[in-house]
Design a binder for these strands. Structure first.
Lengths: 207, 207
DNA sequence: AGATAATCTTTACGTCGATCAGATAGAGAA
DNA sequence: TTCTCTATCTGATCGACGTAAAGATTATCT
């Protein structure tokens, strides 16, 4: 396979169409939104015939899976940055929540796609939940570093899930505009986030 | 307009097609899932031509709005039942969360549709958030009855939002099957829910 | 070089949301 | 009652979609 594509008229064989399709889909997702994301549209954006994607993806949902996969990796990067900001123990947990919600607000359609794909498979992908350096593991690590008992397997698991649930719920809620006045009163989006998160024990006290 | 429909072959004018369409849509949503919910399919289910719905709804999304509206009312009913079970103050808050998640798990596609419609309008419908007896108001009331300070407007609002966010997040998370072993270990779905909710201050202590 | 396999295009089918002209029937005025 | 008006429903149609099949083109391997 070829690595790069000639700048002028594309050759018959693309080179790395799979990658190009995923990137085209990401672009369309940001530009036009999730409702306007069609397989034909992605092929169009990539400059290829409507049936071409079927040589790289079984069907539309498999392409969306690949886009979602990229999303989870971007989220892990956002987590990395948040964890590297050293503050107090309980603030570290809370700021992880802020970073999470920030990512969701920055890429709302991608964020929703990530969960739609997971839900359809009734499972979070392993690289999100189980793997070393998975997003889930990172939350757990921060909880431990914030004082949670690593010996209490069940309790730690529950606390991690509680963190994730709250952050996920907040990520979806904060886009509703009836909260705007409250945000205004508190001095902006992030202050609002911290205000809500501080009402949740796991975020406020690190379990 | 007619009130009821003759049992044999439908007359040219339906009687109350609008209502029949919403009900057909609900039926299809439960039976086939959200992905298989087409406007044509709803018309088919209601025994009517593909263009008939357009005399009662501007477009597909307006029909879905009506279905979502029904969903919010069903949720309010579920809340009512949960609130009437008198337990201790902090348990009342937690059990509201259990009822919320229970509703979402019982009608997963309807639940998602409710939020999809709200998100598209960037707003929760007024009868959910602002009205007397709205679902949002009910959460707030339970928080007050559980010991929250009604005078602290902002704090009460934040606590209510925190409750809702956590419950919503949990509602979406609990369907992932990698949590099944944990549920098993804790003795079932509801024990798992309470375990997670007890890690959240607003649920554990009523603010 | 020739054969084989992978990739891309073309064509096609069925379904979808949506529009519009025309058929049908209930409701009020004569 | 009968006529007219208006709301409701049907039928035909359009463009876009997801997907499949068959043919064209090119990379790879012998």
């Amino acid at each position: 396979m070829r690595e790069s594509v000639p700048p002028e008229s594309r050759p018959y064989h693309h080179g790395d169409l799979r990658r190009a399709l995923v990137e085209a889909a990401c672009r369309l997702l940001e530009r036009e939104g999730a409702a306007a994301l069609s397989l034909r549209g992605v092929a169009r954006e990539a400059g290829v015939s409507p049936a071409a994607p079927y040589h790289h993806f079984k069907d539309k949902s498999e392409l969306l899976d690949a886009v979602a996969h990229e999303g989870w990796e971007k989220l892990a990067i956002a987590f990395q940055a948040a964890r590297e900001a050293h503050t107090s123990a309980h603030e570290r947990v809370r700021e992880l929540g802020v970073a999470y919600v920030g990512f969701a607000r920055l890429h709302p359609d991608l964020y929703r796609l990530m969960y739609d794909c997971s839900r359809d498979k009734a499972d979070m992908p392993a690289h999100v939940h189980e793997d070393e350096n998975s997003a889930y593991r990172r939350v757990k690590d921060v909880l431990i570093s914030a004082g949670a008992d690593p010996g209490d397997e069940v309790g730690l698991e529950l606390a991690t899930i509680a963190c994730w649930c709250t952050a996920h719920g907040l990520a979806e809620m904060t886009s509703f505009k009836q909260f705007d006045p409250l945000k205004e009163a508190l001095g902006g989006e992030e202050a609002f986030l911290r205000g809500v998160l501080d009402h949740v024990a796991v975020f406020a006290k690190g379990l």
